[in-house]
């Protein structure tokens, strides 16, 4: 019988349902400074960290600031550090945490604090605006659109899953520890650049910027960004490393660069797109 009454009752929920109050240590403060404060709240089946934060907000800390929207891992608003790990609070189940000790919740470290769990992530938006925008080749199908094969867009679709939670930016040591926000655009913006560069219709060239303004050389492939990505985008292997290869091809291998330019120029000439930039 497929639709058993008990099919959804899982052992770890039963375990959790026997527990009651749990302690949370939540960072409270603003630009001037702050501290961890303790809160106790009742835990029920299936709760995630964001539920606990909301419950605390409603019970005892009405002005506790946190961002959230979809509550289903789709909007990337509720990023924070839970027990020291960059996480989406809405997708972090309490049953996956050790509840015999306090659960620590604090704001992302790589960005300036605004209040409590809220950080100023506006830098990410400014960085994105600097990246050269999508520039498609002219439509070449008879209905004035394009044809693209699914296998040619699989990789780009992987990058476009990004929900802009900025956890990868938070964990990236270039930003987090070395504070090089002016010189390195970070994993999220690399994934965005990769999605544009590998888009079958795009004709723009961003390798010069990747090397200089975007600072791709700073990434030394520790893959921390890949590990924290809630969308499981293979950031380092699929986005950053291929971009590094493009940069190497273009700037350090003159033969490859020549052939590539030739190929690009030809494709562009055929579609009457603007000619490639002179070297």
């Amino acid at each position: 019988m497929r639709y058993r009454a008990e099919q959804c009752v899982h052992s770890r929920f039963l375990l959790l349902s026997e527990m009651s109050k749990t302690t949370f240590r939540i960072w409270r403060g603003d630009r001037e400074g702050g501290e961890f404060r303790g809160y106790e709240t009742e835990i029920t089946e299936g709760m995630v960290v964001l539920d606990a934060v909301h419950q605390i907000q409603a019970e005892s800390a009405g002005d506790l600031a946190c961002r959230w929207n979809c509550k289903a891992g789709k909007c990337g608003s509720c990023s924070a550090e839970v027990n020291g790990m960059p996480k989406l609070m809405c997708m972090t189940r309490l049953s996956d945490l050790p509840l015999d000790e306090p659960v620590t919740v604090q704001p992302m470290k790589a960005f300036p604090i605004i209040k409590d769990l809220i950080t100023d992530v506006s830098w990410n938006y400014r960085v994105k605006k600097k990246i050269k925008k999508f520039k498609p080749r002219p439509p070449d199908a008879e209905d004035d659109t394009w044809r693209m094969a699914q296998e040619d867009i699989d990789r780009v679709q992987e990058f476009r899953k990004c929900i802009e939670c900025f956890l990868c930016q938070d964990v990236c040591h270039v930003l987090r520890d070395h504070d090089l926000h002016d010189e390195f655009i970070g994993p999220r913006a690399m994934v965005y650049t990769a999605a544009l560069e590998m888009h079958p219709l795009d004709t723009e060239d961003r390798t010069e910027e990747l090397r200089k303004a975007y600072g791709i050389g700073y990434c030394n492939i520790t893959k921390c960004c890949t590990k924290v990505c809630p969308e499981e985008i293979t950031i380092t292997d699929n986005a950053i490393i291929p971009l590094k290869e493009r940069v190497v091809d273009d700037f350090y291998d003159p033969v490859a660069r020549f052939l590539k330019r030739l190929g690009r120029g030809k494709a562009k000439a055929e579609t009457e797109a603007p000619a490639a930039k002179p070297d």
Binding site: D30, Q57, G62, D63, L64, A65, C66, I114, K115, D116, I118
Partner: peptide, 9 residues
């Protein structure tokens, strides 16, 4: 309670 800065209440 609290002030006007990011106050969800």
């Amino acid at each position: 309670p609290g002030n006007r800065e990011f106050n969800p209440g």
